[in-house]
């Protein structure tokens, strides 16, 4: 921990000192919980990267009711963004707009070169082939094995060569350390393993952008760390990742760019602001 951080912490926690009755250990524990690591927003940009997500003055709406307005963001290849905000602040609506589940009616927006305003229903499937979507509740096809889950995506997205499909399936499953569990049904796997399958599924078509909606929401801290390492590794391989989360301890552990949904707007933030 840097000295600067300690100084920040001292200033930040001045008014939040533990009552005298509390032991020093307890006060230390609270202090550590509240302690924000420095995550300067300038450190995680990749200005040379190709822009994958571009929103300009966009209005994100659910059933014609605006949830977020004046949204202007750009996410480039190789960048990892957290999307934070209170429950109901519009995180999921923003992600849904990016993967074409909600229509963009006002403002401008493009994802992987697809114009979100002009995109036709038939084209949405092709937009999603450029993305990898990871959900909090995994959303695996529970009526078939892990191998078949992976195969379904490949067949649905135009893979026909069985040898290549097998090779790719083994590659993505090995990448998430599930190479030996392809024969299992989703319900036979733990939550962390199911989430890794959904990440493997998202990686099949080598997407430009991974959209993750609270991927660690149902997982224990250790498994969450594993999933985070995996997602970070993906972004380091020149892929963009946008991950909605409530878990600030993860942000502290794996600092990166932060977008915050607040009062109907999306603003760039740092961890200190995020916690406040």
């Amino acid at each position: 921990m840097s000295e600067e951080n300690n100084t920040d912490l001292g200033e930040g926690t001045e008014n939040e000192t533990a009552p005298e009755s509390q032991s020093t250990d307890e006060a230390e524990a609270i202090r550590k919980t509240l302690e924000p690591q420095k995550s300067p927003i300038d450190n995680f940009y990749n200005p040379e990267g190709e822009a994958i997500v571009e929103l300009k003055n966009a209005v994100i709406a659910q059933n014609a009711h605006p949830v977020l307005s004046d949204v202007s963001i750009t996410i480039r290849k190789g960048e990892f963004y957290y999307l934070i905000g209170r429950t109901g602040a519009g995180k999921s609506s923003l992600l849904k707009t990016l993967y074409g589940d909600l229509k963009l009616t006002k403002g401008e927006g493009s994802v992987a070169s697809f114009d979100l305003k002009k995109i036709k229903t038939k084209q949405v499937a092709f937009l999603r082939r450029k993305l990898g979507i990871v959900f909090q509740d995994f959303q695996l096809l529970n009526d078939r094995s892990i191998d078949d889950n992976i195969d379904f995506v490949m067949k649905a997205t135009g893979w026909t060569d069985k040898a290549k499909m097998k090779e790719r399936r083994e590659w993505v499953l090995n990448r998430v350390d599930l190479g030996t569990k392809g024969f299992k049904m989703p319900h036979e796997l733990s939550g962390g393993e199911q989430q890794r399958v959904s990440i493997a599924r998202a990686l099949i078509n080598d997407p430009d952008l991974i959209l993750a909606d609270e991927p660690t929401g149902n997982l224990d801290p250790e498994t969450s760390d594993d999933i985070m390492k995996l997602l970070r590794k993906i972004s380091e391989n020149d892929r963009a990742v946008l991950m909605a989360t409530h878990d600030y301890s993860l942000i502290r552990k794996f600092p990166s760019n932060i977008l915050k949904c607040k009062d109907g707007k999306v603003v760039e933030s740092n961890l200190e602001d995020a916690i406040i």
Partner: peptide
């Protein structure tokens, strides 16, 4: 009873006819 499976299929990039 399979509506969520249908939606998942859609979200991974399957076309309507394929589903």
């Amino acid at each position: 009873s399979k509506r969520f499976i249908i939606k998942t299929m859609e979200l991974v990039g399957a076309t309507h006819w394929f589903i």
